[in-house]
Amino acid sequence: MTIRTKQSLSGFVATDPEPTFTRNGDVRVYMRVGQPQARFEQDGTFTQLEPEYTDLVMFRRSAELAHEQFRKGDNFIAEGETLTYTGSDGTEREQFVASRIGHDNNLTRYTVDRTPPERDTPHRETPAREQVQQALAEREAQLDPEPPAATSAASVQRDAVAR
């Protein structure tokens, strides 16, 4: 049996993770990420260069977890693939679509919680989804100075998908 491997990306989170929803209603999280760059000099020293940046996106439960656990400045290691897409302005761009992401243990101090994870039922709202929906509702309220009297989570989700 062959061991499955994927591309990886390591670096730092340059912007706070931004939650949205896909047309299918799945959670999507977007973050701009950077990777430090250095040049090795002939005298054996390193010269720090400007970081290189790219977009990182995740979907569904992985996106919910990333939104909960990552903040601007965190160091990470992610597994996934680099995809090219055409932006709204017609230019081709690359983004890293991560299926897994974790804090870089060489640069981050943390403790490990080894309690078994709870298994979510497909129709149950998770705390992360509720946080994402609340964040979208708050953003909607900032964009629309006179929001409707009652906004349901479902209508926020539909409105986010429509954008």
Rank of each mutant, 00 (worst) to 15 (best):
M1H: 12
M1R: 12
T2Y: 14
T2H: 15
I3K: 08
I3D: 10
R4L: 10
R4Q: 11
L9M: 05
S10Y: 03
F12Q: 03
T15G: 03
D16V: 03
D16Q: 03
T20A: 11
F21E: 09
F21R: 06
T22K: 03
R23H: 12
R23I: 11
V27Q: 07
V29L: 03
Y30T: 15
Y30S: 14
M31S: 04
V33R: 02
Q35Y: 05
P36H: 09
Q37C: 07
Q37I: 02
F40W: 14
E41T: 06
Q42R: 15
D43Y: 01
D43I: 01
T47L: 09
Q48E: 07
Q48F: 07
Q48L: 06
Y53V: 00
D55V: 14
L56G: 01
V57Y: 04
M58I: 04
M58G: 02
M58A: 07
F59H: 03
R60G: 04
R61Y: 12
R61P: 09
E64R: 04
L65I: 11
H67Q: 09
H67S: 12
E68T: 10
Q69D: 14
Q69W: 15
R71M: 08
G73K: 02
N75Y: 12
F76Y: 01
I77R: 13
A78P: 02
E79C: 12
G80L: 02
E81H: 14
T82G: 10
L83T: 15
Y85I: 02
T86N: 05
G90P: 00
T91H: 08
E92T: 10
E92Q: 10
E94Y: 09
E94R: 13
F96A: 01
A98L: 00
S99W: 10
I101S: 00
H103K: 13
D104G: 01
N105L: 15
T108S: 06
V112L: 09
D113T: 01
D113E: 05
T115D: 04
T115R: 08
T115E: 06
E118P: 11
R119Y: 13
D120L: 14
T121K: 12
P122M: 05
H123T: 15
R124Q: 13
T126H: 00
P127G: 00
P127E: 00
A128N: 05
R129Q: 03
R129F: 03
E130M: 11
V132H: 00
V132I: 02
V132A: 01
Q134S: 09
Q134M: 09
A135Q: 07
A135P: 05
A135M: 06
A135Y: 05
A135S: 07
L136Y: 01
A137G: 05
E138C: 03
R139F: 08
R139N: 06
R139M: 08
A141E: 08
A141N: 06
Q142R: 15
D144P: 06
P147K: 02
P147T: 01
P147M: 02
A149Y: 08
A149H: 10
A150F: 12
S152Q: 01
A153V: 05
Q157P: 13
Q157N: 14
R158V: 11
V161T: 11
V161S: 14
